[in-house]
Design a binder for these strands. Structure first.
Lengths: 228, 228
DNA sequence: TGAATAGTGTCTTTCAGACAATATGCC
DNA sequence: GGCATATTGTCTGAAAGACACTATTCA
């Protein structure tokens, strides 16, 4: 509300008045998450030029005039990773005036959730400068990308409680231990195994596939999948 | 993901390529809510010209180049109602290509929550064509405004459970019955009075002011306020 | 005393959380 | 048998939900 007043007070020069209706540029920022070794990780890109040279940033691009917000997010995901069929949801729009020193850019953040085995970042187009980074150890970030990530993580945590978000981070068939790791990574705390299994099974959203998963010299785990 | 492929297939003429980077216009859509007689109501404006003449629409405006998204929402709220100090939160961005027949407009929806007594719509600048409308009986709406309202209502309902959203819809001092009406209006169902009071008081977020509210020929009610 | 709303308590069921031992498969 | 992980049940306390009567004010 102070801003409202401020707007009218600072709107003083004719130059500014003329510029008042300049269209902003609009971009999509795409937060790509996965779980790796029980850690929530995000794809970041090292910037090669100013502004913010050598800082890390979220993938993004301007929106074409013939694509919707969601289509643009899907395109960027496809360009960065070569994959298409994943969980994708709008996070929030960010639009402070000075968030990009090059000019007015409003960005609409989307987040995508991938199972780790779905794609190999090393083979992606931007491989040299893109990297998976744990959200617990974020490097220095360009623009307002730190805030975008933090805000989106809070939203994801809230949604985990009421939606099937975990599904996006797991392969079709998974062990209960993996599912628990998703919850622990998003809540950032340990959960009791017995209580977790009791609850998740009572929700009735997953079912055993009948298959088992074998890895080391130990008991195999039953595999589950989300019901349709 | 179909959209992604489609984009590349249909991106065939040079004309389109040149237009590909045209900047979209960006607007704020402002959903102004209050509770009136236990009903959730929203401010709508009757359109006087094409497109969608005689349809109803959500208040909105383009964003100036020197204001943030939130500042723009505050400005529009101020222009429409003359008030500033209310609960205001971003809902969601909407940006399908053809949502406005006049050209590409991406809109970012905000919602504002007012106590009913806070302002008199009849004295507002747009009084002639603006009106409070119950969200249960929405008239025919212009553009994609029906979807914007529906999506925002779902978000508000979700937030009611975890935040203090009810505070925005009530005056500083209120009766427990009023508070219950807010919950009932947003959940669209009746709540047991004893259970509601037991729970809301156990949360410790409100406290009695010591005042009472007298109206008809019946027992006065104690007044409460939200703690700080 | 009638009308209209305010205010209150108990019981049952469900859910969350603490807690540790046994089962299985492979070497 | 040793190792590594999978799988399972009980108890307790807290919260949710069903349910109906008394209290207060004023005309």
């Amino acid at each position: 509300m102070n801003d409202t007043k401020q707007h009218r007070l600072t709107d003083e020069s004719k130059y500014r008045d003329l510029k008042k209706w300049d269209k902003p540029a609009v971009s999509i920022s795409l937060l790509i998450f996965t779980i790796n070794n029980g850690q929530l990780e995000i794809v970041l890109i090292r910037r090669l030029r100013d502004p913010f040279e050598d800082y890390w940033s979220i993938p993004g691009d301007l929106i074409y005039s013939d694509e919707s917000l969601r289509s643009a997010a899907e395109r960027i995901l496809y360009e960065k990773t070569g994959i298409a069929d994943v969980y994708l949801e709008q996070s929030k729009a960010f639009g402070t005036v000075d968030r990009d020193p090059r000019g007015r850019v409003i960005t609409i953040a989307y987040f995508a959730l991938l199972p780790k085995d779905k794609f190999d970042l090393a083979k992606a187009p931007d491989a040299l400068h893109a990297s998976w980074v744990s959200v617990k150890k974020l490097p220095r970030l360009a623009f307002d990308h730190k805030k975008i990530i933090t805000t989106t993580l809070e939203k994801m945590e809230r949604e985990l409680k009421s939606t099937n978000i975990a599904q996006g981070l797991l392969p079709k068939e998974f062990r209960l231990t993996q599912l628990q790791e998703v919850y622990e990574a998003l809540y950032q705390k340990k959960i009791d195994k017995r209580n977790f299994r009791k609850k998740i099974l009572s929700l009735g959203i997953i079912e055993p596939t009948g298959q088992v998963f074998r890895k080391g010299n130990y008991r195999p785990a039953r595999l589950y999948m989300f019901k349709k």
